[in-house]
Design a protein around this nucleic acid. Structure first.
Lengths: 151, 151
DNA sequence: TATTGACTTAAAGTTAACTTTAAGTTGTAG
DNA sequence: CTACAACTTAAAGTTAACTTTAAGTCAATA
């Protein structure tokens, strides 16, 4: 199957202008054109775009993604570098997830805080609570928030 | 204790200009000034800034954070809205984490793919493998990548 | 063959969240 | 009292990743 830029964009849930931008930035050297100059996406190109999207979600800038695509175009001699690149991105995403987990801990604390305040009608109640009255999983967040006071 | 903008910036690992920018955008209405116009951060302000940072990490834009800060300044009548806001942000972060988990699955597949390619000396080996030869946890990624072919 | 919707390009515009610059002020250490 | 680092402001600059615009071309349908 052959797809136009609009069709492929729909398959990926992005704007056609995004795919044109990627092409201009050198991310799509594999892309073929019709005699009249129209972009012709193949089924196999979906895989390229899926991986590009994955690297974007991992936080990689467009220019670095282009460097990776160029590596792939060079062939098997770059396998080692590509493996290294994916190991690096894996680590980066693992770190992002654990950072977001810490953020989630803080949000959970604040949800508990405002649920408690709502029941009491005032934020004074959760605010003035002793550490023992705070649910165990929340305590490290409360400690974090009071960090400055203990310096 | 009282801190200058530079000292507080160091405590939060941000640039002093970032705190000045937040101030200009109305995120720090609690902040006091010296007679000469210098910003004077208190220990309690660390907690405000920690929560601002948490909301930023949750993906909230500066303007929405300002709206939240204004809610807090209004007092106990906004407790319900604040609880709703934090529940919303919690959900948003949970979704971000599961999106990143899917990205991690793809990266893990690619790491396996290039490890296999490296051992064989060519990407042809993992590329041409049947589904049964692919480790079980990786199979759904390979299926995803081949999605377009089956449409 | 004419219409029409989707395509083409280059170039300019957008957005958020800062960062830098320039000119001047404050506060502290010697 | 003088130096000087760190502060103050307003305004302009930066960056990435698109998006929009304008002027024109392609290709499928009636």
């Amino acid at each position: 199957m052959i797809y136009t830029v609009g069709e492929m964009a729909k398959m990926l849930s992005v704007a056609p202008s995004t795919l044109r931008y990627y092409d201009k930035e050198g991310l799509l050297p594999f892309l073929e054109r019709s005699g009249g100059g129209m972009r012709m996406f193949k089924d196999a190109d979906f895989e390229w775009l899926f991986i590009i999207d994955c690297l974007k979600k991992a936080g990689m800038p467009i220019k670095d993604i282009r460097d990776f695509i160029e590596m792939v175009m060079k062939g098997d001699e770059t396998i080692g570098d590509r493996l290294e690149l994916f190991n690096k991105q894996r680590k980066a995403v693992e770190e992002k997830i654990s950072q977001l987990q810490a953020t989630l801990d803080t949000l959970n604390y604040k949800c508990w805080y405002y649920e408690t305040a709502k029941k009491a009608g005032t934020t004074a109640v959760p605010r003035e609570m002793n550490m023992e009255e705070v649910p165990e999983q929340m305590r490290h967040v409360k400690e974090m928030l009071q960090k400055a006071h203990s310096i």
